[in-house]
Write a protein that binds this DNA or RNA. Structure first.
Lengths: 229, 229
DNA sequence: CAACATTAAAGTGTCGACACTTTTTAAATA
DNA sequence: TATTTAAAAAGTGTCGACACTTTAATGTTG
């Protein structure tokens, strides 16, 4: 009955349709496949994905809760569009949250996890040396690094919040603005410092360094963005 | 067609049913009307509120996104139950987020807002003097105070996150554990210090004090809770 | 021709129905 | 009587339908 060959059709699994749909839409939005600020027509989108409106609506409700779409009663939904101001606000959030994450990571990461983190960073170092300027891997690597520290905090609420909510927004702005970092070498070194103080089990210092690191990253974004406008 | 006299029926407005439903359910969960950890039967709940399952499901999807209910495919949904550990985790989040909020508030609150905040605190002072031990108003007052500072940060993401997500969880645990503070006088004084440094436009100090304040509050919760178990 | 009124089209809000899963109840067997 | 099996009940996943609202198209009048 269902058209499985539709361009955007969702693969069949035992996972609920609504959930697959939610993931697919989230990805599509984050990667700009559905452009920022564009209006969403429920019947059309449902048709594209080969699902009923009911299922779509459930997924949309969750997207709305994650601030990826905005809905106004009777007027329909549109994909959010990130403004410069919002981006700055997100960096302030990150500073607070990841600062705390680093603090907790210094207390709660296992030695093995720290070793693995160091290994990951070494890889990044090689990549930076080899493919100088390849922004994509650097950005991905940066996110990986931060991701692990958040996990290392062992605070489930924090992990949820950062990894499931905030990082998607962050990836979204990277796709949108096509950011490329001019400070990968600098960031790399800051990451190394961070590992050092975490190894030394110094929570205070870990938080401080992480906050500085994120502030520096924000300043970079500001300058890159301002020269674009 | 619809039974308007059902016990839990939602009033008729122009606001979408799903939204009213979401608010009603959130309130019911936060206040313990629907008890922690209880299983939710969609048909039954839909009947209770006099709505269709479709509408209910949409509301549930949003509640799930806010971590107020947990759903497992084909097995149904249940209200979350706050554990001691989770509560501690939430306090760590608050420390980070409200610390940042206080920092920003010291920069961004208007003089008028600060005045009003002082007025609010004076009221609290009177209430504490009058009805010594009346925990409810104190707790409510405490939340009011924190609420205003968050608003004063002028960071929309932060406001959303704290006021729409986290505070509900907090109110929920207060209802659940029936907390009463033994340190209202102490908290009152800390609030006053906070206003002082915000007035002095000292972001650094504002963050520091707020974090101390929340840490103290957490220690209080810990001790009260531990003597209960 | 522009401004307004009037349909028509599209879109959203809400519901009820049905298939498939899990849980419960009942029956049957060792 | 305890355990396994079978049938029934309840519950979840997904869909299509219809009423009401907004937007677009069309026609009408000054």
């Amino acid at each position: 009955m269902q058209n499985e060959s539709t361009a955007n059709s969702i693969e069949a699994t035992n996972i609920p349709l609504t959930e697959r749909l939610f993931d697919a839409l989230q990805r599509a939005i984050v990667e700009g496949e559905i452009p920022q600020g564009s209006k969403i027509s429920e019947p059309e989108l449902a048709r594209q994905y080969g699902v009923s409106r009911g299922s779509l609506r459930e997924a949309m409700a969750r997207l709305e809760a994650r601030k990826l779409v905005e809905r106004k009663p009777n007027l329909g939904a549109r994909v959010v569009s990130l403004s410069y101001e919002q981006l700055i606000e997100i960096f302030q959030l990150r500073e607070a949250l990841e600062g705390m994450a680093a603090r907790l990571a210094a207390q709660n990461m296992t030695d093995k996890e720290i070793e693995e983190l160091q290994r990951l960073l070494n890889q990044h170092g090689e990549q930076i040396a080899e493919q100088h300027g390849q922004a994509y891997f650097q950005k991905q690597g940066d996110l990986d690094f931060h991701y692990r520290i958040v996990q290392g905090s062992k605070n489930k609420q924090l992990i949820e919040l950062l990894c499931n909510d905030l990082y998607h927004l962050l990836r979204m702005y990277r796709y949108q603005f096509g950011m490329r970092s001019k400070r990968s070498q600098q960031a790399f070194e800051e990451h190394q410092y961070l590992i050092n103080v975490i190894s030394a089990r110094d929570p205070e210092m870990a938080e401080l360094l992480m906050r500085q690191h994120i502030r520096a990253s924000r300043r970079n974004v500001e300058s890159v963005l301002l020269e674009k406008l």
